[in-house]
Amino acid sequence: MTFRNRATRRYIRIHLSLSVLYIALVLLASLFIPDNAAPTPMVILFALLPGLVVLGWIWNMGSLLVNMEDEYLRMLEVRKMLWATAITLSICGGWGLVELFAAIPRLPVFFVFPIWCVGLALGQLINKLTLGDGGTCA
């Protein structure tokens, strides 16, 4: 099963490295950008830097699917991602509709990706309950 471990290990290694980079960039942005700063190009650039890491996370997940040679384990990962997408779209779509008609707090767009990640965990649980196997990672 070394092939599976290789793809998974690579995924986890890159994911952890990107996570450290994300935390560092968020801390840097918090340090240098004052609260309620005007949206100057420099402020926007600083704020977007952690966003590049988010793109890296997404690329890493896609790369995991490409590099996984075991079709069953890959299917489990794809199912997790589909569940995560369904859950995220349901929450964001539902919340957005309520926002239109009721005075509830706006859901910051920032939370879309974290919601999707929670959806991954739920997808893993659903895999476990329906297929007996959760999946390898993420």
């Binding site: 099963m1 599976r4 075991d70 079709e71 069953y72 299917m75 297929l131 007996g132 196997d133």
Partner: peptide, 16 residues
């Protein structure tokens, strides 16, 4: 077969 044990188990039990 060059697959994981989970794959063999899933195929044997008809889950995949």
């Amino acid at each position: 077969l060059g697959v994981s044990r989970q794959s063999v188990n899933a195929i044997e039990t008809g889950r995949y």
